[in-house]
Nucleic acid binder design. Structure first.
Lengths: 348, 348
DNA sequence: TTGAAAGCGCTACCAT
DNA sequence: ATGGTAGCGCTTTCAA
């Protein structure tokens, strides 16, 4: 292998850009004694062009020697398209369910050659947030939760997003939708409580902002399930705090409820504990069911019945994204993807 | 306001770049009847240049009319530096503690003009992952957990990262370190158990990969605290599964332990439940203490004693990053940032 | 006060 | 099989 003297790279022509030392493809070309074009061909394995084996080796060696890492921004600027998939993190604290889903999705999209990044939204108004996302020119945007205006989709698409996908209770004009119909969760729970003989059903609705998008449909699902029966539905606003749960539990006798759908397993644990502390027997006096099928439900006594949620497969979603990116013209798909199943344990 | 005919932007000179329609600053300039330079001056509020008020208005109006969003990649290419702060998400499922910390940090860095993104690491070997990060040319990288080779720091710095910060039990050569000394957690727990009269102490060590970086130091902390006393320390490997906990609980009589530090509140809940199911009385037979001070600890019966963790303030970390970015020459700082405190409830 | 133009790093077209 | 080169969108210097 030959070694050449290498110039100090990036001697700034104008003084303003901060001097940087990351080796560029020009540096690799110089060291390998070839042109920048050849470097590009070799490192990208361009099939339309044949490069001789010795040249290939020289380029690879030079790249390794310099620790060359391509510049994604420059590449996507030239390509007119990035490989970036943007996932705004939801406003509410994400549970393990969502965490696993994201991990699986990142893995699948990674294998398809995309770079997935999550970005926060805290402290930005809707418009600002969407602008911030659009500045990154992602090739696709996946939004969990429902807070996306149709206009936002337009902005993102104009900024080059070839796929905008929402995961949430409602579809948005112009965007692909993975509809997670949370009324189904409520319907399952309501139906289960009814089938096990409960007639005065309370439904916890968290007061925490950001959870509304899920809590409202879950409540409505219970109403749907019990509509036209002799059962009643009582809405129970609840903050995720011990004191709030204790206050609610104190009112339990006057509420006279014999069934409770607690929004999810965590709120169920919170309220069930408060109820037990007040002497309410579960399930005899009041049956309790949660949702999400978290580990903690199995550890409670009585073991918590729950609505198991089947989130969409990350692999399938990755394929949807890839398809949409490759054929951006196709109309927005809508899939209903939320599987639900009752897991009956001891609390109902 | 005047309107001009606007050309179809981005008529591709060569056919290869995918045709795109995002308006550029040139489009804004055309519509406003000024040069691209003027557009840049106005939209960036460049103080070195005075632009007349009417011109400003025309530019702003044109930008709004077109829905112009600047192209971050082009900007950072020109600037030689991005505003991107990269946070690789930890391999293990992140709890609410970490979630709040990240949210606070994003907020603080956002206010300083940075764009924070989290990127996954699943399915990539260490080298590949670091390369993938480096391609994005982040101005700073914040790594939680300990899996960062000194060589990785070099790669990132050569790729333009002006600050590499690790948050974890160990410092890495060349990187700023926010040292979270988890032995302190173990020491607190061990000391507390000893002070409350326990002498045969078990310490849960999760078998889940990725947790080792925290579990080992916590175990060592307990050993440190009890070293030279008449107390014994028993290491208890445990998977986060009911069956594993039941198996461990079945061995409890032969283990003869009167104190337990369960790694964190979740493992504490898991094992405490299994112990109670086998008739072990908590705290009488065995005292149990967790860590992280999660809500669920307050809901258990007996209420779970725990080691409360004080994570570093997001705002302070944001300031550290900003300082490091502005003055990249400064030597790596090391701060010890993990506050710990015993929260004694009923389980000890 | 504004405009022309260079060039950041990269890739793909068209020569050689 | 390789090299020259234009140009992606942006900012900033220098000139007008």
């Amino acid at each position: 292998m030959r070694y050449l003297m290498v110039q100090i790279p990036n001697t700034p022509a104008s003084s303003s850009p901060a001097p940087r030392s990351a080796p560029t493809s020009a540096d690799v070309a110089r060291l390998a004694g070839v042109s920048r074009a050849t470097v590009s061909y070799v490192l990208n394995n361009t099939s339309a062009v044949r490069i001789s084996e010795p040249t290939r080796r020289r380029v690879h060696d030079a790249a390794e020697e310099l620790g060359y890492v391509p510049h994604a921004a420059a590449r996507s600027l030239r390509a007119g398209q990035s490989r970036l998939v943007l996932m705004p993190s939801p406003a509410f604290p994400a549970g393990p369910l969502y965490g696993r889903f994201v991990a699986e999705l990142q893995w699948a999209l990674g294998h398809l050659g995309y770079t997935v990044v999550q970005c926060g939204t805290v402290g930005l108004h809707g418009d600002e947030a969407v602008r911030a996302w659009a500045e990154l020119r992602p090739v696709a945007v996946l939004v969990a939760g429902a807070d996306l205006a149709p206009q936002a989709v337009t902005v993102l698409k104009r900024a080059g997003a070839r796929a905008v996908v929402t995961l949430g209770p409602e579809a948005v004009e112009g965007a692909h939708a993975l509809l997670m119909d949370h009324t189904a969760v409520g319907r399952r729970a309501g139906r289960h409580l009814y089938d096990t003989g409960r007639r005065r059903v309370g439904v916890v609705v968290p007061v925490e902002t950001g959870l509304d998008a899920f809590a409202r449909p879950r409540l409505r699902g219970v109403r749907d399930a019990l509509d036209g029966t002799d059962a009643t539905v009582t809405e129970l606003p609840l903050a995720y705090e011990e004191e709030a749960a204790a206050r609610l539990a104190a009112r339990w006798p006057e509420l006279g409820l014999d069934g409770l759908f607690a929004y999810n397993d965590e709120y169920a644990m919170l309220l069930m504990r408060a109820l037990q502390d007040r002497g309410v027997r579960v399930p005899r006096d009041t049956a309790v069911i949660g949702a999400d099928d978290l580990m903690l439900g199995r550890l409670l006594r009585p073991r918590l019945s729950t609505v198991h949620l089947e989130l969409p497969s990350g692999r399938r979603l990755a394929e949807l994204v890839d398809r949409a990116v490759r054929a951006p013209g196709t109309p927005a798909e809508r899939h209903t993807v939320l599987g639900t199943a009752i897991v009956r344990r001891e609390s109902t």
